[in-house]
Computed example of a mutant assay.
Amino acid sequence: MDVPQQLLLLLCVHLSLTGVLSKHIDHRNLFTQRVCCKRQSHFVYIGQDISGSPVSIDVGMCRSHCGGAFRPSHAAGQQEYSKHASMLEFLRSKKTREPAAPESAEALNQLPSCGVDQVCGPTGMRVERVHLQEGPREVEVIEECHCEIKLTQCIRVPALRTYYSETPYETVIDVGGCSRSKGSPEGLSCVPTKFDSALVETPNKVDLIQTVAGCELKESCYRVPYVEYYYETVHHADGVKEERLKEIDVGTCLGGCTTGNRCLLRSPSDPKMCHLWDDRQSSSCVPQSYESHTFLSQHGQLRTVLSITSCLCQN
């Protein structure tokens, strides 16, 4: 047997083995991670620029479900999908056939795009600075998405943000975030309660960026400590006057209430699909109760400082 015939025989054996192995390979994970867990456009209206023109930004969103491209719960669907060499070919073949009955939202939610212990979330984000009529505003934009491990504990997780992208001052900072805990009690969320700061050099000055240092399970609108210091004058029984530092936790309210997120532009063909959102809040997290701290100031004047004890959502 000459050399060309040997090469031809080896090629035939390789193709045969490839065909046999391909029948036993489940392409589902590969396709779902690439096709389903990806960035999609999500335009948000943020206001008017200095010329009065409306400004909307594609902040992006991570698609968390496959949307019914196939039905892994049915054996027939798996057999039908395995006949095609790629996801693209499979989708093209579906277009040539009669349209299937629309699936309910509950059925779509049963099609995860990542593994059982993973979620589809952002892996790269940048902070865009937009100049509006009311002043500059920073908007976080999702650049890429990936499958990440689903955490059951409420802990601080890394969150990289790129500031002043594509400029000589481009800086990447781990601003931190809180895990999307799935084991949270009813009505509680994993939210930031401790903060730190980082410095970012800019063309005009140095910006102070707030970062997350710790997280806890709280309600959507919650109180966090906020310490302030005052000079207090104390008169002792023996007639001695003492000036000392007084620490008061005045507190502050954080968290999200019912946000506007109103749809400004819906799809004519599918009313459930929104092309443009308004992210302005319709309610705010404000103090609900407080307590007073009265003391003599550095100059001997009676001073009262109020500290927040609880917060609630208010329109």
Rank of each mutant, 00 (worst) to 15 (best):
P72E: 06
S22W: 00
K38R: 15
K218H: 13
V59K: 13
S56F: 07
S189T: 01
S282A: 09
V191C: 03
E103F: 01
T252L: 04
L254I: 00
A237N: 08
S197Y: 13
G135T: 02
T259Q: 06
S179D: 10
E106C: 06
S165D: 07
V119R: 03
Y230I: 06
E134H: 11
E186H: 06
L91M: 12
Q33L: 08
S104N: 08
G260F: 02
D270L: 10
L88R: 11
D58Q: 09
L11K: 13
S86H: 07
G52A: 00
L276F: 05
P102H: 02
T233G: 11
H27F: 04
K182R: 01
V250S: 06
P287D: 11
I248C: 05
S16Y: 05
S41N: 13
P185M: 05
D278V: 02
C120F: 12
S165Q: 08
T294K: 12
S289R: 15
E216R: 13
G77L: 00
P136C: 09
S113D: 14
G67Q: 12
D238T: 09
Q298W: 07
P122A: 15
G214H: 15
K218D: 10
G260Q: 03
A237R: 09
D279Q: 12
F70C: 09
S56Y: 10
A107L: 05
R280V: 04
M61Q: 11
E128Y: 03
P122R: 14
P54T: 02
S292N: 11
L15V: 07
Y226D: 15
T167V: 11
E170P: 05
D26P: 01
A100D: 14
I248F: 08
T211L: 08
R262A: 06
R34P: 03
S51P: 02
V116A: 04
C313M: 07
R39L: 10
C66I: 13
V119C: 11
E170S: 13
H236M: 03
D279Y: 07
E219K: 14
L265Q: 13
A105H: 00
I248K: 13
E138G: 03
A213G: 08
P185V: 03
S283W: 06
I57N: 05
M125Y: 01
S184N: 10
Y222E: 15
L296F: 09
L217K: 04
E80W: 06
G68V: 07
C36M: 10
H65T: 14
L264T: 01
A107R: 08
Q298F: 06
S197N: 06
G183L: 02
H65S: 07
E291A: 04
Y164D: 08
K246G: 03
L30C: 01
S269W: 06
P168H: 11
N29W: 00
A213I: 15
H236N: 08
